[in-house]
Design a protein around this nucleic acid. Structure first.
Lengths: 253, 253
DNA sequence: CTAAATCTGCACTGGTCGGTGCACTGTAAC
DNA sequence: GTTACAGTGCACCGACCAGTGCAGATTTAG
């Protein structure tokens, strides 16, 4: 549950072979890597950047080709046309982002003692994903082009509607079963936690134009977790969360 | 604090005179309204719709002119060029949305008895604003073009960074002072409530492609208010909120 | 070595679109 | 009347760009 298969669609056999041998994108410092066939990776990465920066319509294939140090023809050889390139670039980036998000949520698996600390840790990582420059670029691109390319929705998510929140719900369910959270609908709890994290950021980031410092990111995560635990924690009860002495909600930066 | 002045910038005297006499957009059923000068309003409304549907770059002035039943030249007479038209259209729509949001928040002013019910009412209205088709169009357009036109940020908000959340904070402060909410940073409380509302919707709306039924909207508002009151309500205390018998959080639709 | 495949540089086409110029119409003010 | 002005319809220019064709260079496989 990571590759989704979608991203791989339409690859040229040669390109697949190429990325199977060397790859890892940030290849060794050898300049230009002549003759090798990580062209495809370069095209995808550059295309995403240019599309995000200029928008689909404004972005020109000449610009992408130039910036990727590749002939325009090479792009057509790999992807056929502009639309396919957009889809492939978005799919690749979405997979990257999704994997990062799921990895963060997965840290809830090895929860030892302090639930609040663990949640804040995971929250901080999710916040970091959200504030990531590339994350913003992806979101902007989706908002921009979703009405032109409705199928992008299916490309970025697997069959699930929102794999990250679902994974979060899974983890919260286990925590509730272990008595660390109030019993109830784990999906609802996950939704509220995710909303607290991303909702605050959406307001603060001003459509991605404002950069959020690490300290501010952490404060947002703390405030979100604080509110969340008030609503879903085992009150002043037995579990690892002794009401936490009113940790001042959201120390603004 | 409503006109912001920005929207009015660049109007032609004649157009101003025209809208001063008749206007109210949805003019009486008189077809085509020949000779009258609500052309400007028609252009702005149509431009917003077309821009939102096609994106700035894809949208053609010919299409806007045709759809607004106006000669292309008329558009240039009023706005000079495409960029100015975009800014004016967005400014007009943003003002509309902002006014609607502020009106919703303002209903917290005449709070009589049941705080939970009042909050759910306001929450529902804010949710409705967010789910509004035009609201989504505006947000999509902003996400899409903010990197090309960073000044759109200043156009849509007054001097305040987020007038709606600030107004909400004002109202929450009064409620806290009256003992209906826990004392603390009202700005933080407002941020969390707004995050719970919009964050949940952001996830559910799938970039604006999915329509949210009225029932689902109400459920989202209820869940948000429930979580919010757990965190910021005067616990099982004296005020009008007697713990509310565990109103099952988020009855999914 | 040869052969197949890929990549490159360049020139070209066909279409689209922002913006302009011009001649004309209809209305309102004087 | 006439003067002024907002709007209309049409044709046009110039720029930009997706996509193609071609000829030659480079690489990999055998």
């Amino acid at each position: 549950m990571l590759g989704y298969g979608v991203v791989m669609s339409g690859r040229t056999p040669a390109a697949a072979a190429g990325s199977a041998t060397t790859t890892t994108t940030g290849s060794p410092a050898r300049p230009s890597a002549r003759g090798r066939i990580d062209k495809r990776e370069a095209i995808l990465a550059t295309a995403f950047v240019v599309f995000a920066r200029e928008g689909y319509a404004q972005a020109t294939l000449d610009a992408i080709a130039a910036e990727a140090r590749v002939a325009k023809h090479t792009i057509y050889n790999h992807f056929g046309d502009k639309q396919t390139l957009l889809r492939a670039a978005i799919a690749a980036e979405a997979d990257r982002a999704m994997a990062k998000n799921l990895a963060a949520v997965d840290r809830l698996r090895d929860h030892d003692g302090d639930l609040r600390a663990t949640l804040e840790d995971v929250g901080s990582q999710l916040v970091a994903c959200y504030c990531d420059e590339r994350g913003w670029a992806l979101r902007r691109l989706l908002y921009a082009e979703i009405s032109q390319f409705p199928d992008l929705l299916d490309i970025i998510t697997g069959r699930a509607s929102d794999p990250v929140t679902e994974a979060l719900a899974d983890r919260l369910a286990r925590l509730a079963l272990a008595g660390h959270l109030r019993a109830g609908d784990p999906a609802a709890a996950a939704e509220q936690l995710a909303a607290l994290l991303t909702g605050s950021l959406e307001a603060r980031c001003r459509y991605g134009t404002r950069v959020i410092s690490a300290a501010e990111q952490h404060a947002v995560a703390r405030a979100a977790v604080d509110t969340f635990l008030h609503a879903f924690g085992t009150a002043p009860g037995p579990a690892g969360t002794p009401a936490a002495g009113e940790g001042d909600p959201a120390a603004r930066c």
